[in-house]
Amino acid sequence: MSEHEHNPFPEEGNTGHIWDDNLRELANPAPNWWMMAFYASIAFVIGYGLIYPMIPLSDSYTKGLTGWTAIGEYKASIVEVEAVRKPFEDKIAKMSAREILADAELSAYVEASGKVIFGDNCAACHGTGGAGNPDFPVLADDDWLYGGSIEQIQATITNGRQGMMPKMGGQQLTDAEIDKLANAIYNNGTVTKEPLYTSKGCMGCHGPDGKGMVALGSANLTDGIWRFSEPDQLASIKYTIKHGVNDASDPETRKPKMPAFKDKLSEQDIKKMAVYVYKFGGGK
């Protein structure tokens, strides 16, 4: 580049920057529409800055004329949602879980809105839709350890549950006896015909009919639903008989525990969860 003292193209309004004899930079203005858009965008920024929060200060920021904030908008939308839910929630507050269940509109509301509470608090163990997991009971079936009425479900959620079965291995039963009992349980419905069931005191908790007792939370041994469901179900039954459930004297005992939710969830939410679980299809 050379600054020409004698500009060879004086008429065309170039900047005087000329390369290789005739390559030169012209001083043409940008197109009109482009400049208009440019000024419009500057005006937009100013307008935006006036209306919305924009410039960070040392310990604050410019608030803007409207006082708009993202968190404010979020809170406003929460208020909006709660306003929609309020008539339902107000009704639920005054009703028992059984009454909610009887009300088609409210139970539909609970079914739709309870998903989040269930997902946050229950689904980790019991699975989405109450499908259950190994070691965690299925909630969609009608086999309940502590009863499947709406009140019983509500009580279970409120106070939690921890069942107990003494270990039968060692002094009480020999391995051969455990085999016999386990096989009788495994072939659904035949356990009560096994003499050991009576003589060794199983019926004391599981009942003379083998269907368990709600007061104790003892399992029904006559149906095909297993409290501890494993691929090798027979082995699983033997293990349970041998080591028991929550038996402190056996370090290998099974340790299931349903925590109490009364401190974690409001009474309102527990009521909703009782209805929600009931409606999985197993409620009685």
Partner: peptide, 18 residues
């Protein structure tokens, strides 16, 4: 058809679908 769970075994030996 409900996918979670696909089916549920009931205590009377029936399979329930939702």
């Amino acid at each position: 058809h409900s996918r979670q769970p696909l089916f549920v075994l009931q205590s009377d030996g029936t399979i329930q679908n939702r």
